[in-house]
Amino acid sequence: MLTKRIIPCLDVKDGRVVKGVQFRNHRDMGDILDLAQRYTDEGADELVFYDITASSDGRTVDKSWVRKVAQIIDIPFCVAGGIRNVDDARKILNDGADKISVNSPALERPDFITELANTFGRQCVVVGVDSRQENGNYIVYQYTGDETKTIKSKHETLTWVQRVQDLGAGEIVLNCMNQDGVRQGYDLNQLKAVREVLTVPLIASGGAGEENHFKDVFEKTGVDGALAASVFHSGQIPILDLKCYLKSQNIQVRL
């Protein structure tokens, strides 16, 4: 049976892994390669690296670490942040990443998703969506890597994710901004609503604070994977313990 994926997310800034609360106040969490190896050994199913400065700064970011990560780990990984054209994506995939994830550039130019899917196959193309609940609606936000540049986009989340799928996305990561970094649990209502309108895999992001939050998100929303950062980086939830717990709750995981 296809198992539910546990995905540590490593926010990368200037070549180090960092973590902020609701996208602010970034703290140093360690070396990229050390953390990548640690999570692989602990049983992570996949890793996501978000270069959180890249998209909003509009500059080319040093991604020499992608190749080094690809050399040492033997599980799949995805790279996000600052991928603005097909050549940017090609370089990262050629360096050994399995998937690339785009967010703000896809909002600027939705056809970019189709270009990526046509060039590399949709299985490589992940679209990240930062979404916030406002007055009962789910709204997509843009340039969330930098608080001073974050803006509300014109898109409602439920229509945007369907469009993204139609344009060629092979997977969607939904980051629920109200929940991010506050460890109160995933946004179950929003994730369930998004899961119901999609046929591609959906990954939940934002809000994990306890083991039972993972159980809830898998049981109640049908998402395919759950992404988290600080609870893994801090060691608060060891991945192996989490997977044993989920298995004991009859959720299929790879052990």
Partner: peptide, 12 residues
Amino acid sequence: SNKTIPHMGWNN
């Protein structure tokens, strides 16, 4: 059933 496409992830 209502499974996702692509078949993506770890399977036995």
